[in-house]
Design a protein around this nucleic acid. Structure first.
Lengths: 262, 262
DNA sequence: ATCACTTCGGGTCAGAGCGACACGAACCGG
DNA sequence: CCGGTTCGTGTCGCTCTGACCCGAAGTGAT
């Protein structure tokens, strides 16, 4: 339709969420930021991102950039919003397509930390570059809203999980305690999860059953775009790196993992 | 962050919805399309849109372009999604920020119809340019989804309206009949509407009360972006053109308007 | 072995919300 | 004054949900 627009930079940024224990040991929402090494906003913390190249789609660009800057491969990735106010960058005109992503705790700990990449608690951020504070705020709102009507919580967990772990994710994101009995009832009646038959022993209490997500139920109802999302997810399976130790999951090794979660 | 990206066109398009009577006289969802006068997709029907200039925000660009191509000033305008697949345009690489809009029936009828602008029923479209069929499908899904949990219906109506008119909007969008009594109960208990005190006489039945939207309740909960949306709406008040005849609204003249709606 | 302690998992109960439906109220036209 | 229409109020039953209870099933200490 238009000739290539001159003078407007097109970038993709991503808000990445993961659950990590805060100072009191309880899990809460964190996100990685990168320090800017260029003007504008030199040395300020900012969302990971970069320009879109001509031969990659927006989502592909987000994935590639995420891998390059933080080493992360998210289990969930969705477009958030396009930010394009004229004055959002003090120098050049900049339009950013922003995505938001969820990663698992194991994956999160692999982030190559350094002077220029660091985790921050989502609700206590410094002054970020551009309008990134607003963007994070909006992404957090979307995360919390979506947590209540869809099934994104599992993107924070592994293949199998106990209902207590799943409830822990909800509690961490929504920042309020949930009744275990009622939570169980809802999950079971929704048909979203199914028991695997295995249990986790080792805790000093009755061993809980392990569950998995029932594939029949859609992860998220994104409407007509769902087909594209699902197809894209198939191309990028939820983490299956061949480096690093496999995560021991069942029986005696489970308690250690629970420590990570709570 | 990035230098201006070369080789990628940046455009804004808008899916505009209005309620118009279909062949059986009942109101249904329509949208205006424009015929392309350039390659690619020469002569195909497409969403109104155009390039973003460096000195206007995305939303401003959408509003300006809408006015230029169709003459419409929507009462509701919200960003839908950014489409940026590599192959969505056969010639140049094209990223489109798509908005969706709602306009009132009176406003809709002002669209300067011609060989190159025409209304189409939303669920019976021809083959459109680019991926615009998918885009419209997604916009329709958003419209229907959002109708159920927010208050966008009023964007299809004037300042005052009867509950039957409001229910008519919901029925047209959701394509299913709603129980008048239950619909009334919901609207009243939600506190979203309040009676103006006036009634509409002239119908051969009990005269219905007129309502307006209670300003206290947010139009839509868009989260942290709401403030920006509200501010933008204040700059673009919901239609107050000084040309054209004022719409007679109350008492004896109301029945004629009802004809438009049902 | 038994007990204290923990979480798991199944159950009850009351209140809110909603769909379905009934019926008087109010107006018009004949 | 009567039939026809929609408006507006009320009722009933079902479902969902939040709050709470308690036995079940483990571990660790005595």
């Amino acid at each position: 339709m238009p000739a290539p627009t001159p003078g407007i930079g097109l970038a993709v940024s991503t808000v990445i969420f993961a659950l990590r224990p805060n100072e009191t040991g309880e899990p809460s929402v964190w996100l990685p930021l990168v320090r800017r090494i260029r003007d504008p906003y030199l040395h300020r913390w900012a969302l990971p991102g970069g320009p879109v190249s001509v031969d990659e789609s927006l989502e592909t660009s987000a994935r590639r950039n995420l891998l390059e800057t933080t080493g992360l491969q998210p289990t969930y990735l969705e477009q958030l919003y396009a930010f394009g106010d004229v004055d959002r960058s003090p120098t050049t005109r900049l339009v950013s397509i922003v995505y938001w992503a969820l990663v698992r705790p194991e994956e999160a700990e692999r982030v190559s930390l350094g002077e220029n990449v660091r985790w921050f608690p989502a609700d206590d951020l410094p002054d970020l570059a551009f309008d990134h504070n607003l963007i994070v705020e909006y992404a957090l709102w979307r995360l919390r809203t979506k947590m209540e009507y869809s099934r994104i919580a599992h993107a924070f967990l592994g293949e199998q999980f106990t209902l207590a772990e799943l409830r822990g994710v909800h509690e961490a994101v929504l920042q309020k305690p949930l009744d275990p009995a009622n939570f169980r009832r809802q999950m079971e009646s929704s048909g979203a999860v199914e028991p695997t038959g295995e249990v986790v022993s080792g805790g000093r209490h009755r061993p809980p059953k392990l569950y998995r997500y029932a594939g029949a139920v859609e992860l998220v109802d994104a409407g007509p775009l769902t087909a594209r999302v699902v197809a894209a997810a198939a191309q990028h399976p939820p983490i299956s790196r061949d480096d690093g130790p496999a995560e021991p999951r069942v029986a005696e090794s489970a308690p250690a993992l629970q420590e990570d979660h709570r």
